[in-house]
């Protein structure tokens, strides 16, 4: 069996570990998909060979430390921005960890992602620069590219802690075809005890969906889809969640990506989803092919499919003429 597919089956149902023939291949595929820590927590207490148990224990400890570091970084940003009075919404991994949501278990967390109102950007920039963050060296074109067309500032790195922060001011690139309402997401965000904020449940799902299917080339897709699975499972206990999610997806122009995410999450991780909302599509097979393009040596496979999704990611991000100019500029380097 394809090792990426086996990985998704074990994550969905750890009792299937009897199907594992090559643990090294499974662990390697999991690491390559940034799911090593997640797998380690899913298999905690499962009867695995002693060597595997010891590798998984290391991965759980490592994930716990990564969580501590990520939360500390969020606290540093909170302190830097507290006096501005600007609402700071945590996104992705740090948000899950800060809110104690299920996707956080074992999840690797890279950069700190925050969302702030677009009008507040100059003040946020100033406060972060004053608190020790610096621009990662970029050329003038990159800076222009981010500021004019993207949904986030050029990346900043902290000069002492060596950690990056991505400051988002909207959900998708300004040039993208779909236009989610970032201000509505900020307005409806929920305060945590320390003053930082997280997105409301429906928006949190839709933000993960937007990044998986309406932006990017599906790199890390199995992990993002796992996030969506875990979020849905914890939110669907609330009555009327599905109808609110449906309405919110329409509001953010993300209905089709949401439906695709629901179908694929159900397919890979047996996520309980509302069939009427998920709908059907023949195109899912191609996405599935891309999401599973990983072998037991951790190598990216299916070059043609990957290239197709890479081209698609740019197509989604900007209109054709702008794309042509952008690629020309990149090619001249």
């Amino acid at each position: 069996m394809n090792d990426a597919r086996l990985l998704t089956r074990i994550l969905a149902d750890p009792s299937r570990i009897g199907e594992v023939r090559d643990w090294t291949a499974l662990l390697c595929a999991a690491r390559a998909e940034s799911l090593g820590g997640t797998l380690a927590f899913r298999l905690e207490g499962s009867p695995v060979p002693p060597k595997v148990a010891s590798i998984l224990l290391d991965a759980r400890r490592d994930a716990a430390q990564a969580r501590t570091q990520a939360l500390w970084e969020a606290e540093m940003a909170r302190r830097a921005l507290a006096d501005t009075g600007i609402p700071v919404v945590l996104l992705k991994g740090t948000a899950y960890a800060a809110a104690g949501l299920p996707p956080a278990l074992g999840r690797s967390i890279g950069d700190l992602d925050i969302l702030v109102p677009r009008t507040a950007l100059p003040r946020v920039e100033e406060a972060l620069l004053g608190a020790g963050w610096e621009w990662v060296k970029e050329n003038a074109y990159d800076d222009h590219y981010y500021r004019t067309w993207m949904h986030e500032l050029p990346p900043l790195i902290h000069r002492e802690r060596d950690r990056m922060i991505d400051v988002h001011h909207t959900i998708l690139p300004l040039t993208a075809r779909r236009t989610p309402d970032a201000q509505a997401m900020i307005d409806d965000s929920v305060a945590l005890g320390d003053g930082l904020r997280i997105l409301a449940p429906e928006d949190m799902v839709l933000h993960a969906v937007a990044h998986l299917f309406a932006d990017g080339d599906l790199a890390g897709g199995l992990r993002n889809l796992w996030d969506i699975d875990r979020l849905l499972r914890s939110f669907t206990e609330t009555p009327a969640f599905w109808s609110r999610l449906d309405a919110r997806a329409r509001r953010h122009d993300l209905l089709a990506p949401l439906q695709r995410a629901l179908r694929l999450a159900a397919r890979f991780y047996r996520t309980p989803v509302e069939q009427a909302l998920a709908g059907r599509s023949a195109g899912d097979a191609l996405y599935e092919r891309r999401l599973l393009a990983r072998d037991g040596w951790g190598r990216a496979t299916r070059r043609g499919t990957r290239l197709g999704f890479y081209v698609r990611s740019h197509w989604l991000r900007m209109p054709p003429m702008m794309l042509a100019k952008h690629l020309l500029e990149k090619a001249r380097r």
Binding site: P49, I55, W297, G298, R299
Partner: peptide, 29 residues
């Protein structure tokens, strides 16, 4: 051990580098 702690891959930096002036990219977990 039957299960490896780490995987290392020595592979062509680009597909044609397996034969033409072969160069080894160091990759792995």
């Amino acid at each position: 051990d039957e299960v490896a702690d780490f995987t290392v891959r020595l592979e062509p930096a680009t597909p044609w580098r397996r034969f033409a002036r072969p160069s080894v990219a160091i990759r792995g977990d």
